[in-house]
Amino acid sequence: MRTTIILKTASNYLLPVLLVFSIFILLRGHYLPGGGFVGGLIASIAFILHSFANGLNKTKELLIMHPGFLLPLGLAISFLSGLAPVALFDLPFMTGLWSHDPIAILGSVGSALFFDIGVYLVVNGVTLTIIFTISESA
C-alpha cells in the first residue's frame, strides 16, 4: 500500500493520542456517553490506522503479542469481576461492588468498571483479530 509521508508521521503521533482517548472514553462510560464497546472500537481503529500507515508488521511488533490473546484476557477479567462478589462476599453472581469513597476523575470505582475493561479488551481483540487476519490473507 502506498502511503504518504504525512499520514505515516501523523499516525505515529495519533496512535498514543487515540489510545489515551479510547481509555478516556472507556473510563467515563459510567457517567457520560462512552464505555467499553466504543472505547475498544476506538482503540482498534487507532491500531488499524497505524498499520495502514506503517505496514502490518510494524503494528504487530508494537503489540508484542497477537491481538487474539486479548480475547481470553478480556473474557477472564469480565468473568472474574462478576465472580468477585460470589468469592469474596458470598453474594449472587455479578452483584455490583463499590468503593465507599469516590476516587478522583473516575468517580466511585466498582466491579462494573472492571467488567467494562474486560469488554474493552475483548472488543479490541475481536476487531484487531478480524482485520489483521483478513488483511494478511487478502
Binding site: 464497546f37 472500537l41 472488543v123 476487531t127 478480524i130 487476519t133 483478513i134 487478502a138
Partner: peptide
C-alpha cells in the same frame, strides 16, 4: 441496539470471510 451493532459487525466479518 448497541449490542446489536457490535454483534452485527462480528456477523458481517464472518460472512465476508466465509464468502471469500
Amino acid at each position: 441496539i448497541l449490542t446489536a451493532i457490535v454483534i452485527s459487525f462480528g456477523l458481517q466479518s464472518f460472512a465476508i470471510v466465509l464468502v471469500k
